[in-house]
Design a protein around this nucleic acid. Structure first.
Lengths: 232, 232
DNA sequence: CTCTATAAAATCGTATAGGATATAGTATTG
DNA sequence: CAATACTATATCCTATACGATTTTATAGAG
């Protein structure tokens, strides 16, 4: 048994659960994915198999398989006899397209989610909205990172309640690219974003589908406008 | 040089174009993809690496890489120590979700496309609408296959004119799954579908965005209802 | 005859070595 | 100094071996 730096699941073995350890290829996939999401591999940079072989202490085979999978997800590009590289940073055009997509899907989802809400779900949304974490600011960078994560959860929870897994997956997939973009130009936490989340919550609490859709639309449009300066 | 059965590009060599032959992994990917799309590998069936090794006369490495890519695209699933298998047939739930997604995106795209139309584009749509090929029926199965292809082109062209590549890619990606579903329960060509295409065309020709959106919505809803019996 | 347990076969996952080709940098030559 | 040739590096692909796991076949017990 070789010692590669990837996470191993000892818990599964210990707790008598079904023993189906992850494949090495799967672990490698997650490791590279994490590096892409954390910008340790910046957009557009080259990714060589040999470097990963040295870094993870793992053979070529699982690495190629993992890179293939990342290619299929569009997070990594491949050129024959050149090699792999991280997907380039999002363009202005792509940015606009993404927000157009979000505006078509998320307000409708918000409206649809209203019908499925109960006490418990509302509470879950309330927590995810990040209203609590509002004034926990010390390290600006860390604070932003928390905000980004909570924002993602909030939107995803709404998608979950809207009961369309396909749309939810589609948006989550796009979110990975968006996440990287947002980290590159990591801004500060905007109080407005939290206010907008509260506005959406209020519409949910009131059970007003139309208001929920509108609040979501306003939120997304404002979000877009807040990020737009990154392209200048 | 080994002799595997995969397509090689002699044209590139002949025509003095930039010489960048596909990688073997790329060829293998396309070969497997084609087999999935043509049902030679039916939904849910196992895909063993060794079988592909024998079939293509290619070593493990490029095959694993190609399978990884297909996994990333969701066309193939992998279970550790069990192996790969083709993605299962679409469920009723997924079917509904897909049509909900289409209804959110395609009518809006149709409306948006209207503004970009000119003579040339209208003609392209007219051709793709399949009005011409209406009465070219002999072999029912072949005829349906033609219809399916033309239908896909028609919808994609509209997405192209709507100028949102992200949405276009998203729908195209889903279409691969849909295509497989439709082939499994391959029905007959419905004259109604062609009528609906003409209705969309008429709205386009009139430059009426609202009517285009509505015609598209009606078309998608009818398409859904026509396929629904497959689940009973 | 059915069920269980063991053994054999098939498949997957991993690792390693090496040949072929393309790119890039360096050195040599005109 | 410029152009060409060569070397080093990196990549892709192949081949092969072996361990681990699952599946299948077979034999024995109830």
């Amino acid at each position: 048994m070789q010692d590669h730096g990837l996470t191993v699941d000892n818990e599964a073995r210990a707790s008598g659960r079904i023993q189906r350890a992850n494949s090495l290829a799967g672990d490698v996939y997650e490791a590279i994915f994490a590096q892409l999401m954390s910008l340790r591999i910046p957009p557009g940079s080259r990714i060589t198999v040999d470097n990963l072989v040295r870094e993870f202490n793992v053979s070529h085979t699982p690495i190629r398989e993992a890179l293939g999978r990342l290619e299929g997800e569009g997070l990594v590009l491949k050129t024959h006899l050149i090699g792999y590289r991280a997907a380039p940073q999002i363009t202005r055009r792509r940015f606009d397209e993404l927000y157009e997509l979000r505006l078509l899907l998320e307000p409708a989802a918000a409206a649809k989610a209203v019908a499925t809400l109960d006490e418990e779900r509302l509470a879950a949304l309330q927590e995810a909205a990040g209203v609590m974490a509002r004034r926990v600011g010390k390290d600006e960078r860390l604070r932003y990172s928390n905000f980004a994560r909570q924002d993602a959860i909030f939107h995803d929870k709404i998608m979950e309640f809207a009961q369309n897994e396909l749309i939810r997956e589609t948006l989550n997939h796009q979110h990975t690219h968006f996440h990287i973009f947002r980290l590159m130009y990591h801004s500060r936490v905007t109080e407005e974003a939290l206010d907008e989340h509260e506005a959406i919550l209020a519409a949910f609490a009131a059970g007003d589908a139309g208001a929920a859709a509108k609040a979501m639309r306003v939120h997304i449009e404002n979000s877009r406008d807040r990020l737009l300066p990154a392209f200048e």
